[in-house]
Design a binder for these strands. Structure first.
Ligand SMILES: [Mn+2]
Ligand SMILES: [Mn+2]
Ligand SMILES: [Zn+2]
Ligand SMILES: [Zn+2]
Lengths: 139, 139
DNA sequence: GTTTTATTTAGAATTATTCTAAATACGCTT
DNA sequence: AAGCGTATTTAGAATAATTCTAAATAAAAC
């Protein structure tokens, strides 16, 4: 439930850059997401966070997640119209949703492949963000 | 507002394969989506469809879109948490959302590139569906 | 320590979508 | 062509995820 000094530093720097305050709630939620490296929804994070911070509200969880995304500490992952999930892996990567287990997996993508994908865009398109999502079955 | 005989045939075949009936509403919505090759939301399609079919309901639009997707005549496109959009382009392709205009564009992807992307998956992952979405700015 | 401003909180509101149940249409059999 | 069983349409209610509101609290600046 506590951030290591390495992550504490990252956390404070990242929020600082966006003029956001490093609050207890933001730190707590960030530490929960780092801890269990799955891709939880806001509601799952809400439930987990109440274990050690019973007074936190769902609105705060949404607010904190928004701040963490804005400051670049975590990213959002969306599959179709399911609830948004949150991911602490900052390396560029794709996601795979297993239809059977409902689990989300990180899929590494090589730099050259990513470049090829970006280069598939005609020159009038300037991409800011790319999202690559698979779904299917994992053994 | 009418399907060409080529599309009429495709339409009837595709629904037939899923044991779905070729109703007036389904045909009308399919023709609207083919006509204006943008990526409309259910609500936009609802508004357009009322022009020539004033009695259609929003629930029917949702139902018809679901049938058309199920039978493979159109596909869904989701950007983050925005309303689902619908696309009549059946060739594998990616999508680009321009943040400025709100327009969605089809991005062609070569077969070899698509294969490379699929091959980026470790062997225990069997992909059924891939979604590649860009967003940024288009000149 | 006091003031200023950002954040948290509970609950209400919103939005897209799905559900419900009654009315209607479709397509097969006679 | 009429009748029958089933699928579809329809209007409105319900749902689920997320956002908004406004008052209470906490953090930073002074
Ligand atoms: Mn994103
Ligand atoms: Mn899809
Ligand atoms: Zn991830
Ligand atoms: Zn498209």
């Amino acid at each position: 439930m506590k951030l290591s000094s390495k992550y504490k530093y990252l956390f404070e720097e990242a929020l600082e850059k966006c003029s956001l305050r490093p609050t207890k709630q933001r730190e707590h939620i960030f530490s929960l997401i780092l801890q269990k490296k799955d891709h939880p929804t806001a509601d799952e994070i809400f439930k987990r966070s109440r274990a050690s911070m019973p007074s936190i509200s769902l609105a705060t969880v949404y607010n904190c997640l928004e701040s963490l995304v804005e400051s670049g500490l975590i990213r959002q992952v969306n599959f179709e119209r399911e609830s948004t999930r949150y991911c602490p892996n900052l390396k560029p990567h794709a996601h795979f949703l297993c239809k059977k287990s409902g689990e989300v997996y990180d899929i590494e993508l090589s730099k050259p492949l990513l470049d090829q994908i970006t280069n598939a865009l005609p020159s009038e398109f300037i991409a800011e963000h790319i999202e690559i999502n698979f779904n299917g079955l994992k053994n």
